[in-house]
Computed example of a mutant assay.
Amino acid sequence: MSHRPASHSTPTTEQAAALIAEVERTLAEGQQQLRSMGLDPAKVRALGQALTPAQQQQADNAVRQDLAAVDQEVAEAQARLRAAEPAAGGPSKARRFI
């Protein structure tokens, strides 16, 4: 489903073609991720379209909360790793005095 710019290429049509290609790549990656989790992309899409606005808002809030929790866990794990690392450069060498 790749779109190709017309033979009369302008910066705007080139940007549009690049954007379309990016969207197609993103959609394909999303579908692949759903398949890797054992989900049917068409069914997931249908479920999302069947939600009322209130249900959609509730689902969006739940996803945002989950992502924030993941970000928090990652930040905590990174902090633990930094705290466990030895100081950079190790102990300093003794200096000779003249």
Rank of each mutant, 00 (worst) to 15 (best):
E73D: 15
A84L: 09
A83Y: 07
L27S: 03
A62E: 05
A59V: 10
E22T: 06
L51D: 04
L67C: 06
D40P: 01
A21P: 01
G30F: 06
A84E: 07
A68Y: 11
Q31P: 01
M37N: 06
I20S: 07
P53I: 03
D40I: 11
T52F: 05
A79N: 12
E76F: 09
K43V: 07
A21H: 04
P41V: 01
A18M: 11
P53A: 06
R82E: 12
T26A: 07
A50H: 08
S36Y: 01
L51K: 04
A59H: 02
E76R: 13
A17L: 01
T52W: 05
A28N: 01
Q78E: 15
Q49F: 03
R45H: 12
L51Q: 10
K43W: 01
P53D: 08
M37I: 01
Q49R: 10
Q72H: 13
G48N: 10
A75K: 14
A69G: 09
Q57K: 08
R45M: 07
D71I: 00
A77R: 15
R82V: 03
L67G: 05
A50W: 00
A68R: 13
Q56P: 00
A62M: 04
L81H: 14
T52S: 15
Q33M: 13
M37R: 13
L19D: 10
A77V: 12
M37L: 14
L19W: 02
L47S: 08
A46Y: 04
A84V: 12
